[in-house]
Computed example of a mutant assay.
Amino acid sequence: MPRKERPLDSGDSAVLTFARELRSLRDRAGRPTYRQLSSLTHYSEAALSQAASGRKLPTLQVTLAYVRACGGRTPACR
């Protein structure tokens, strides 16, 4: 059984707001585990978990993969 996600710190910094939005997207997707997301994105569970940790901004590549795996929309690449 996966561990519970660590609560985000209080505050409204851009990094925390971004993490809240990623977590919200994951919730709307049915709360897939990071293992499930990893198999869809080919990024490690740790990288995906860190993306929503609120400690630092994830890379664009990890963010886009996370969003796609959760059924979110991403901008079209040109």
Rank of each mutant, 00 (worst) to 15 (best):
M1G: 09
M1F: 15
M1L: 12
M1P: 12
P2Q: 09
P2H: 03
R3M: 00
K4E: 09
K4F: 04
E5D: 14
R6P: 04
R6F: 06
P7G: 06
P7D: 08
P7L: 13
L8V: 02
S10I: 09
S10P: 08
S10W: 11
G11K: 10
G11E: 01
G11D: 06
G11M: 06
D12L: 09
D12W: 14
S13N: 07
S13C: 01
A14M: 06
L16Y: 11
L16S: 05
F18W: 12
F18V: 00
F18I: 01
R20V: 07
R20G: 02
L22T: 08
L22M: 12
R23L: 12
R23A: 03
R23Y: 06
S24E: 14
S24Y: 13
R26A: 00
R26L: 01
R26N: 04
R28V: 00
R28L: 02
A29R: 10
A29D: 02
G30S: 04
G30Q: 04
R31Q: 09
R31V: 02
T33L: 01
T33S: 14
T33A: 02
Y34V: 00
Y34Q: 10
Y34D: 01
Q36R: 15
Q36L: 08
Q36E: 15
L37S: 10
L37G: 08
S38A: 15
S38V: 09
S39I: 11
H42E: 06
H42L: 10
H42Q: 14
Y43A: 05
S44G: 11
S44H: 09
S44D: 13
S44N: 10
E45F: 05
E45C: 03
A46W: 14
A47V: 07
L48V: 00
L48K: 12
L48H: 14
L48D: 10
S49G: 15
S49R: 15
S49A: 13
S49L: 13
A52H: 04
A52R: 14
A52D: 03
G54F: 11
G54T: 01
K56V: 08
P58T: 06
L60V: 15
L60P: 06
Q61L: 10
Q61F: 05
V62K: 10
L64Y: 12
L64W: 02
L64I: 04
A65S: 03
Y66K: 07
V67E: 08
V67G: 02
R68T: 06
R68L: 06
A69R: 09
A69L: 03
C70P: 05
G71H: 01
G71Q: 01
R73A: 11
T74S: 13
T74R: 09
A76N: 03
A76I: 03
C77D: 13
C77L: 14
C77T: 12
R78Q: 14
R78F: 11
